[in-house]
Computed example of a mutant assay.
Amino acid sequence: MAIRHIVLFQLAATDEATREEHAAEAKRRLEALVGVVPDLLDLTVSRNVAYEGSNFDIVLESHFPDVAALEAYQVHPAHVETASFIGTIRSGRAAIDFEV
């Protein structure tokens, strides 16, 4: 069974221009991990389009062949660098990992 890794981010910025800039940069950095992190099968990043203020702002959906690959992704230097950046622009995070 493959693993689906879903992460939701709430952006910290309060002005719309900064929020859009941060969302675009997070998307760019996350999508750049495809082809860099071994066993990252695919990854998509989307921006919330409804219920601003009550929904999370960004969703990351990625797939791995197994939990070991997900764990390797978590410590891969490219992911660590990207996660560090996202840590500076977010105020909240939620995640779930499940078999598909």
Rank of each mutant, 00 (worst) to 15 (best):
S54L: 14
E21I: 06
D97M: 04
E99I: 00
V45F: 09
A12C: 01
V67P: 00
P38D: 10
D57W: 05
V80F: 09
M1E: 10
G53R: 05
A68Q: 13
D42P: 06
V7N: 05
A26Q: 04
I96Y: 03
P77H: 10
H22N: 14
V45I: 12
H63C: 13
L60A: 10
A13V: 02
E20K: 13
P65T: 07
A23F: 03
T18F: 00
H22G: 04
L60N: 12
P77T: 07
V67S: 13
L43W: 09
R29C: 12
Q10C: 04
V80N: 05
A69M: 08
R28Y: 12
A94P: 00
A72P: 06
G87D: 03
G35M: 12
I58P: 07
V49G: 15
V36C: 05
V80D: 05
S46F: 05
N55K: 14
E81A: 15
R29T: 08
P38K: 08
F9Q: 04
H79W: 01
V100G: 05
D15K: 14
A12L: 03
A2R: 02
V49R: 11
F9D: 00
V7Q: 08
E31P: 07
V67A: 14
E71C: 03
A50W: 09
H63S: 13
L40M: 13
E31Y: 09
E31G: 10
E21P: 03
L41K: 12
F9P: 02
I58K: 07
L33P: 05
L33V: 08
A78E: 13
D42W: 15
F56C: 10
L33S: 07
L11R: 02
E71T: 04
H63Y: 12
V49H: 13
I3M: 10
V80M: 03
T44F: 14
F85M: 01
L41R: 10
L40I: 09
A13I: 01
I58W: 03
F98T: 00
D57V: 07
I6L: 12
I6Y: 06
T18Y: 04
A12T: 01
E52W: 11
T82L: 04
P38V: 04
H79K: 07
L60I: 15
L41C: 05
M1I: 06
N55R: 15
S84T: 14
A12M: 02
E71Q: 15
F64S: 07
V37E: 05
P65M: 04
R93Q: 01
S54A: 15
V100N: 02
V100R: 02
M1D: 14
N55L: 13
A13Q: 02
D66K: 01
R90G: 01
E25D: 14
V34W: 06
A32G: 11
L30S: 09
E99W: 03
G87W: 02
T88P: 01
A83F: 06
D42S: 15
I86N: 03
T44A: 15
L43S: 10
D15H: 11
A68K: 06
A69T: 07
R47S: 14
R29E: 11
L30D: 09
